[in-house]
């Protein structure tokens, strides 16, 4: 289980505290007003931001001081998820090992996963030749190949249209979500959370709250969430 233990984050004047567990085998959505610290929390989980105090744990392992590449964590950013000068196969293959020449069995695995995300035959293309949706699929293929137990999604599909975005979220659920994987996704769209997430963590007022089941939190949203959703005045 991915765990934030008395975590205190500081970035300039901004602070955030978090003390919660992210359940395994589920998608947890981070929601809250913009600037509340959703991406900051994700940066800390991924290892890009050192916490002031507290610990980040996965099962019993302390990740707090482990460099990003050595954590059991994959991440997808809002943009720049693919290296423009590398082919789709090379980009996806980086999930297997961070080298450009893979062994033949590894290459076969890359081709298999590319097919799984609907990119069969795109191996030799460059990211620039692909549409936005296809680029997202390629990045997803890399995360699948990395086979790490935690996946962080920092709004990687935000730039896609609603139809494509739903398609991608369904693909994430179908391919990435396994019983022993923890998926944390930042979103500002309640529909995304309802569609893909079993739990919602509300990030607001300098605090990341404990996860709550998606259905119940939207049924009776706390005041902050209600304000954010624009239903508070009703």
């Amino acid at each position: 289980m991915l765990k934030c233990e008395n975590l205190f984050l500081k970035q300039g004047d901004f602070t955030l505290q978090a003390d919660l567990n992210f359940p395994k085998g589920a998608v947890t959505a981070l929601m809250g007003p913009s600037g509340a610290g959703k991406s900051t929390l994700l940066a800390a989980l991924a290892g890009f931001l050192q916490p002031v105090s507290g610990r980040i744990l996965y099962d019993s392992a302390d990740l707090t001081h482990i460099p990003p590449g050595d954590r059991p964590i994959s991440i997808l950013f809002q943009d720049n998820n693919l290296f423009p000068h590398l082919t789709i196969a090379q980009n996806a293959g980086l999930g297997v090992r961070p080298v450009l020449r893979l062994k033949s069995d590894e290459l076969a695995r890359v081709a298999e996963v590319l097919e799984q995300v609907g990119l069969a035959g795109f191996d030799a293309r460059l990211p620039g030749d692909l549409s936005g949706g296809q680029q997202s699929r390629a990045a997803l293929a890399r995360v699948l190949l990395a086979e790490r137990p935690v996946v962080l999604l920092d709004e990687p599909f935000a730039a896609l249209g609603p139809g494509l975005k739903h398609e991608m979220l369904d693909l994430v659920k179908r391919t990435l979500l396994t019983p022993d994987r923890t998926i944390v996704m930042v979103t500002h769209d309640p529909d995304d959370a309802k569609r893909a997430a079993q739990h919602v963590v509300l990030v607001a007022e300098h605090t990341a709250n404990k996860p709550e089941p998606t259905s119940s939190i939207f049924a009776s949203p706390p005041a902050v969430l209600a304000r954010y959703l624009g239903t508070g005045m009703d």
Binding site: A46, G47, F48, P67, P68, G69, D70, R71, I73, S74, I75, F77, N80, N81, F83, L94, G95, P98, A146
Partner: peptide, 8 residues
């Protein structure tokens, strides 16, 4: 960041 998370 991407490279770091990939372990480069």
């Amino acid at each position: 960041r991407l490279a770091a998370s990939l372990g480069f």
